[in-house]
Amino acid sequence: MIANYGYTDGSGEYYISINTSFCAECQTHPCISACPQGVFEMITDDYDEPACSVKDSFRKKLNYTCSTCKPARKSSESPLFLPCVQACVNRAIKHTW
């Protein structure tokens, strides 16, 4: 399942997209500890599969929360410098902005 957490508002589209089909085989979940803001958590999804997800408390303010990792304006051109994107060997995590 591809889960898109985030939002679109007047100022833009801010989603963290997670391909959770990789999460079942992943043993260590390095993404969880990679995020300096603690955005991610492991859950059991509606189909009883383990899945990385964005904590509810962050879903409506990703643009603000992630701003500390995105000081440069054109960070989207080199997304690998984001710790969460880098942590997942399967590249299951993507930012849309």
Partner: peptide
Amino acid sequence: ASRIAAMTRRVG
């Protein structure tokens, strides 16, 4: 303030 701060951080 947190929204304005986040926006401003984009320029440093």
